[in-house]
Design a protein around this nucleic acid. Sequence first.
DNA 1: TATGAATGAGGGTTCATTCAT
DNA 2: AATGAATGAACCCTCATTCAT
Lengths: 170, 170, 170, 170
Amino acid sequence: MALRADAARNRAAILAAASEAFAEHGPKATTEQVAQQAGVAIGTVFRHFATKDDLLVAIMKESLKRLATLADESTLAEFFTAVVDEAARTRMVVTALGESRLDIGDALRGLTDSVSRLLEQAKAAGEARSTVQVDEVMALLTAATYAARQSSWTTDLRQRTLAVILRGLR
Amino acid sequence: MALRADAARNRAAILAAASEAFAEHGPKATTEQVAQQAGVAIGTVFRHFATKDDLLVAIMKESLKRLATLADESTLAEFFTAVVDEAARTRMVVTALGESRLDIGDALRGLTDSVSRLLEQAKAAGEARSTVQVDEVMALLTAATYAARQSSWTTDLRQRTLAVILRGLR
Amino acid sequence: MALRADAARNRAAILAAASEAFAEHGPKATTEQVAQQAGVAIGTVFRHFATKDDLLVAIMKESLKRLATLADESTLAEFFTAVVDEAARTRMVVTALGESRLDIGDALRGLTDSVSRLLEQAKAAGEARSTVQVDEVMALLTAATYAARQSSWTTDLRQRTLAVILRGLR
Amino acid sequence: MALRADAARNRAAILAAASEAFAEHGPKATTEQVAQQAGVAIGTVFRHFATKDDLLVAIMKESLKRLATLADESTLAEFFTAVVDEAARTRMVVTALGESRLDIGDALRGLTDSVSRLLEQAKAAGEARSTVQVDEVMALLTAATYAARQSSWTTDLRQRTLAVILRGLR
DNA sequence: TATGAATGAGGGTTCATTCAT
DNA sequence: AATGAATGAACCCTCATTCAT
């Protein structure tokens, strides 16, 4: 029972370290880097996540789940802004949205559902035209997310770019 | 000090092969694959491009130059469409637009100039509102390009997504 | 200083599990597999057997002792047949007979003694020629045992092969 | 053309090193050990043999081919003796004969053919009874080979053991 | 200049063994 | 005494880059 606490702490540390490492170096960050960052031996990483890909998936799902939660508390415009903000910090958001090799389908579908709801609200509020469909919103989200990764992006540019997209949805 | 005829031919073959290889497998395509595709030994690849990154840069610059030329012959809307179409075929366009690690700054600036001109024309034609600036157009271009890479994209989705962006610019 | 009842039970369970695991996957079966099979944590395995090799030795000795007992109740021919039969089921018999790296010398000597007695009886019964010595019988036993491990062996082939050996001893 | 010579020399060195390493430590000898023994970097080993298993297979096939050649120049008795002699030196002969996981079927079949011929000759010469079949001869060969690996085997013991087998075939 | 074999650092993963609880 | 998480050396293999021919 006590050890479980240690293990849980390590698992969290690994996830945190992985988030950071992948955020900075993308998916090619080394498992050893993750281990080091987490203050843990390499074997411990593999005890918790049998494969590097498993670790990647875990982080992506976490990320997507966080976004889904966020979606449930925002308007479409707010959500777009928040996602892009996070993407500016983390390379993994976009990797998650754009990755097809790894099995994150469920989580992605969960997010799509949330966004779908947001879109309906936006339509009801007159902030999205009725012809717009979810898939293009998701596509635009992914797109914006990706662009936000550019190191040259200032807050100002981010706002102007988002404004164009949101205007286009109206 | 011009290259020997066969050297020039090799260089071209390598570039072509690299374009194809990277288009298909992304930047993680092997130099050996490139060499093979070019019908050349690896040593030859490295004689022409001292580093894999150098090769990557060369291709990206080529790509950006091609896009700049294209920009000079189109309207803004046509250009967007054309770029996104190419991106759907080639993974490198987006890598080029989104890459910050490699030094392709000047080529990117060249493209920005061309797009700048397109934007002015669009404004004059009433197809872009006057407050829009080049940097957000570039950002949107990058974004659209990235999203276009998704394997799930149909032509239809591509069109709808572009429509939103172009509408937003107006 | 006898073991606690539960400790004794664990020790037995581990030995049984190890027998099974090594029988199936050879000596490369994992200690973790053994622990799992025994329904015990790894730590417990290592408390009882300080080393994987120690565990291996224990099993081999057990195996050899069982064979010695068997020898005391059979004729030479019966014994050969029985051993080969068991070897066809279990990969460890042969490993035990053929192993030189691990220290199972005394157990092996015990078996040799038993076989020695069998041989004398066989000679008396006219089923083994007088010039035959124990060491070659042991060698033949090891040999037959090994060959019996081949997956391609049918019962028929086993019998014919044994027949040759037994005939040779006469 | 000149490099080919170097490469060939390296390939031979690797095979020789691997033979030795595997002979001494069995199939669990490290590829690094092989590389070192061959005076070559690890990459070179993998350039010549894409996989450790490939290297293993290569050596086994070499071994089996050598034996097949030998078979074509001997009587059954001589062949048995020679094989057992080689087995005493090399752990791989037996591994080769007993291995089923790796694809050495062809080579094994080749050897079986050769032995088949030997057996016919032996029958003609009255040194093998007519009821004996090839498969049991192969089995006995494998068996003898395995037993020969024992470190305790003296030349004398080897001869006596073989004598029993050969007598049994008659 | 071209060739392609050689190099070797580094990556993901396994597993016997240790140790905190 | 038992648990099971943590350790870390070792393994197989890849690939950008170098260098002898």
